[in-house]
Computed example of a mutant assay.
Amino acid sequence: MSQARVLSLVGLAVFAVAAVAYAQTTVTPIPDKEPVQTAPLNAGPQSKWGDVKAGATKAGTCAACHGLDGNPTDPQYPRLAGQSERYIAHQIALFKSGERNTGMSAAMKPFADALSEQDARDLGAYFATQKSGAGVADDTVIATGPNKDKKFYQVGEDLFRRGDKARGIPACMACHGPGGAGNPGPAYPHLAGQQAAYSQRRLEEYRAGTTTQRDPHLFNVMAGVAKQLTDEEIGSLASYLQGLHERADDIAAAGAPAPAAKPAAAPAPAQPAAPAEAPKPAAAPAAPAKG
């Protein structure tokens, strides 16, 4: 074999090796996909994001039960103040379709039936701008059982903040936020300050694990958490949530200026002294209070 032929073969081999090496180090980008089309939750063709002013007008219908600003005075009705627009619109849609049919759903359905998708959006937008109130958590000391000597609300506080790893229960704050403000993206509700009676009822419904929702994935998330909770844990968690509120509220209350003192009243004109009366007999001592 001639030297020239050998050199040509060597050159071809080097070229082949170089081509393979280049192919292995060259990245061929995948063509970009079309942008994802997003749409509001439960939005029909005529629905758009809610209008706060329109919602404020429509909220008059809700005031009898939920309060004009979404903070009811009757503990059997849930707080709507601070809930996200998407969550409220979603729940109204479930009431309207009959997919949410437990608890006081029968009372809600006639109102939901009268609302359009846009009405639901407007109401949600309005209540999302309102500030949620809060109640008081039960700090009674537990006398017996596995949580003996804990304050009642502390059982729920532990579950909210830490969950229970041994039972596979995640911390509630992982989805609902450390202050219970919820997450408007996936429509996880605002829990801080929620009425204890309402939260307890909903947790019991989740624990039962029965739903007629056509798309139950959000329900199933909560059902998986609640199925292992005891009655005491559900009651305690509901109580803790009722008292949960932003720390800023305490700071604002502590820094609030004291009410101005009322001006002293002008002294009354002197009156002529009344004639002295005969002394009255002393009153009999009060009876001690009976349990």
Rank of each mutant, 00 (worst) to 15 (best):
D119E: 14
R100H: 12
H245N: 10
A286R: 13
P184D: 11
A43L: 09
G103F: 02
A286L: 13
K280R: 15
A64D: 07
P72K: 02
A248N: 08
N42F: 09
L12G: 09
V20A: 13
L244V: 01
A187Q: 00
P72A: 05
D164E: 10
D138S: 07
K53S: 15
Q271T: 06
F127R: 02
E277G: 15
A137W: 01
E117P: 01
E277K: 14
T230L: 07
A260G: 14
D250C: 06
P78H: 04
D158M: 05
E117S: 09
L68Q: 05
S199M: 05
A192N: 03
R214L: 14
Q24L: 10
K150L: 12
T210I: 12
A16W: 14
A289N: 15
E157T: 01
E233M: 03
P170G: 08
E232G: 06
A196W: 00
A253Q: 15
A43Q: 05
E246T: 07
I234D: 00
Y198E: 01
Y87V: 00
K33N: 12
C65S: 04
R207F: 02
G193D: 01
R247I: 14
S2A: 12
A120Y: 00
A286C: 15
A134E: 08
V17L: 11
G82L: 02
R100K: 15
A4R: 08
A81V: 00
A273L: 10
G179Q: 02
T61C: 10
